[in-house]
Deep mutational scan, measured.
Amino acid sequence: MSRVPSPPPPAEMSSGPVAESWCYTQIKVVKFSYMWTINNFSFCREEMGEVIKSSTFSSGANDKLKWCLRVNPKGLDEESKDYLSLYLLLVSCPKSEVRAKFKFSILNAKGEETKAMESQRAYRFVQGKDWGFKKFIRRDFLLDEANGLLPDDKLTLFCEVSVVQDSVNISGQNTMNMVKVPECRLADELGGLWENSRFTDCCLCVAGQEFQAHKAILAARSPVFSAMFEHEMEESKKNRVEINDVEPEVFKEMMCFIYTGKAPNLDKMADDLLAAADKYALERLKVMCEDALCSNLSVENAAEILILADLHSADQLKTQAVDFINYHASDVLETSGWKSMVVSHPHLVAEAYRSLASAQCPFLGPPRKRLKQS
């Protein structure tokens, strides 16, 4: 649940008159999402009104509101027999009622949201009550392989729920002597030191190019640089560091992050930047690179990204790559990247197969709970 924001200063709310007192009302909304995959969808019983329910879910471990999704594969009634019906059901509720908006969509073979439908307002739910769409999607369109909505005969539904909580009022009075504290510009100011090479005390040599930097900042941000300058190493004695395995453009992006906490060109060089972040123990930059690479996972590059993640101990990226390969196994196994990995990294192939087997055979063990970014 997000923290209630402070109200904007009255002088910034309007260029008009300023009242002596004010009130700011925040209506709290808890948002969460749920993904439900139905394997072997074409084998569902086709009687009209037949119901399939998901397991229950909530916004978190401490949330007492429990929900589930309900599907009628062949419609709810005679009117909707040519459609799939989809509903959000409130299973248990400690209150007399709650209000919530919802959005349903289908994830296609690429994991993209399609055929989205959402409620136009927050509906009133009581325990045992459901709301949804009797005519969510035509069955003939859903079952047509050309539309790519049932890869490997799996129907994957994605649901986003927004639950309306209580409202909170914050009130106060205006004073004539309003003090406005300026925003912190530390990142910009440190970035200026790097860009202008002011007050530098060490030189970093990268592929024949020299960059002036500040030992204190490098040591504070990177345990690797800290070790170089702290001990009686040649880098500490000469205040000069030779860097041979990072390209200059990648190095500059890494230094921008060290000084400012930002990497504006990360998406263009996420793979190389991940390697640099791993070498210099820049954990936050490493996770930022993992996130960017996750966003660009595809059938063509899944094997290469899995190898990269394994090489640099990028655990979150590795998990996402394995899950992606499992979901698109029939396509990924035909790529040149996968065939190369079979020869060069057989242990990763074995890991992917083990994960695929456990996903398809849940009876082999208890269900695993899916539970950071600093």
Rank of each mutant, 00 (worst) to 15 (best):
A219N: 15
F229L: 14
D272E: 01
C159E: 00
L157S: 13
E78M: 13
Q316W: 09
N296L: 14
W131Q: 04
V51P: 13
L155K: 01
N174I: 04
C44Y: 03
S340W: 14
K129D: 11
L89T: 07
I27V: 01
Q373L: 12
T260L: 06
K31G: 11
A352S: 04
I137M: 07
E118G: 11
V332Q: 00
V30D: 13
S21P: 10
I258R: 00
V343G: 15
K238V: 06
H214W: 07
N169P: 02
G191K: 03
F136S: 07
E210N: 13
K31V: 09
A187P: 08
T156H: 02
P248A: 01
L371C: 15
S42Q: 02
E47Q: 03
E232L: 13
P151T: 08
L143I: 02
N72T: 03
S105V: 10
L364S: 13
M341K: 00
D271L: 06
K134H: 12
D82L: 10
P151W: 10
L204Y: 12
D245V: 05
E46C: 12
N62S: 07
S167H: 05
P151V: 05
V164G: 06
M233F: 14
S105K: 04
V206Y: 15
I217D: 00
R368Q: 12
W36V: 07
P94C: 11
T319Q: 04
S85L: 04
D272Q: 09
K81Y: 03
M341Y: 01
E242Q: 01
V168G: 10
C361N: 14
V246L: 03
M1D: 00
V168K: 12
K110M: 05
L333G: 07
D82W: 06
P10I: 11
F251W: 12
C23F: 03
G60T: 10
A227P: 01
R185P: 02
K64I: 03
T175M: 04
V250C: 02
I52Y: 05
S344I: 08
W22D: 00
D130R: 12
G172S: 03
E47F: 05
Y123C: 15
I137T: 05
M35N: 08
P94D: 15
W36A: 07
M233V: 06
H328W: 13
E113Q: 03
A219S: 08
A109D: 15
V332F: 09
L282Q: 08
E234H: 14
G111S: 08
N301V: 05
D323Y: 10
Y259D: 00
G261D: 04
S167E: 08
D153P: 12
S15M: 10
R284E: 04
G148S: 01
A213M: 11
W194S: 11
G192I: 12
C202I: 15
T175A: 02
